[in-house]
């Protein structure tokens, strides 16, 4: 494994780690939408204070967060200039026919802020919530849809197994790619078509191995008495505690404050 996957769970025991996944997922959704209700400086101050506090409480290394933010750098870069040059209003600086306006500058800064906030909040969720909690929370939040005959439990199981095998597959792709490079395979030169064809020596072995893994996994699941997701009970039951209640109240308080501040 040469590069760390973006947004990977960082084990820990912070307050954020201990929150119920449903509360965290709900709060994440709220925090992703709330910037659109913010218009004044004080709203931004309140929101930023909240998010910075959450980041500090999570104990997640800032380097990991910055690395994640770096992945959206180019999108942010483009967005910044798009808003900077296309928003009409009171001109600050004119370069021929293009004018930079006060409104444009503010809008551009606001967009970058929203994007960074979005990424920070989302990665805070994945940094502090293990895959098992994430799927469990998702399963619980989607469970009303079971009445509409949606196989929520099966989907949750499929998702769990998929998440379980992400690191395994990553390692395997890395190994096969190296093995083929050692045989002189070249993945870097040529046009798009040629490059795509050059990936065959990686994809075929990965598919073959994925089928074998799936087969062995199915056998192992059979051996352990798996019938269908409906027969199963769960060891872990999600239970809301006082910490979860407190967190919910704080997030609601934040929403009201931000709306009140406008």
């Amino acid at each position: 494994m040469s590069a760390l996957p973006i947004g990977m769970y960082v084990p820990g025991n912070s307050i954020l780690h201990r929150l119920d996944p449903r509360v965290k997922m709900g709060a994440t959704l709220v925090l992703m939408m709330i910037p659109f209700a913010v218009h004044g400086l004080w709203g931004y101050v309140a929101l930023s204070t909240f998010v910075v506090t959450a980041v500090l409480l999570s104990g997640v290394p800032l380097g990991a967060l910055l690395r994640t933010l770096r992945t959206v750098f180019w999108i942010a870069f483009l967005m910044f200039f798009l808003y900077l040059f296309t928003t009409p209003g009171e001109p600050l600086l004119a370069l021929g026919s293009i004018a930079i306006t006060r409104q444009g500058l503010l809008a551009a800064v606001a967009q970058i802020y929203r994007l960074c906030l979005l990424v920070t909040v989302a990665s805070l969720l994945t940094f502090t919530t293990s895959p098992i909690h994430l799927t469990h929370g998702l399963e619980a939040m989607l469970s009303p849809l079971e009445r509409a005959r949606l196989p929520v439990r099966e989907l949750a199981m499929v998702l769990t197994i998929a998440l379980r095998f992400v690191p395994t597959l990553q390692e395997e792709i890395d190994k096969i790619a190296k093995a083929q490079r050692a045989r002189g395979a070249d993945f870097r030169t040529g046009g798009p078509l040629r490059r795509a064809r050059n990936l065959v020596p990686i994809f075929v072995p990965i598919f073959v191995s994925a089928f074998r893994r799936a087969d062995e996994l199915a056998t192992a699941m059979d051996a352990r008495g798996f019938r269908s997701a409906l027969h199963r009970t769960r060891m872990r039951k999600l239970r809301l505690g006082s910490l979860d209640l407190l967190a919910t109240l704080i997030v609601m308080g934040l929403v009201l404050t931000v709306i009140w501040l406008g």
Binding site: E172, A179, P201, P205, V208
Partner: peptide, 10 residues
């Protein structure tokens, strides 16, 4: 030759 080199056959 990595461990289990047969895995690289394509």
């Amino acid at each position: 030759a990595f461990q289990y080199p047969e895995d690289q056959i394509f």
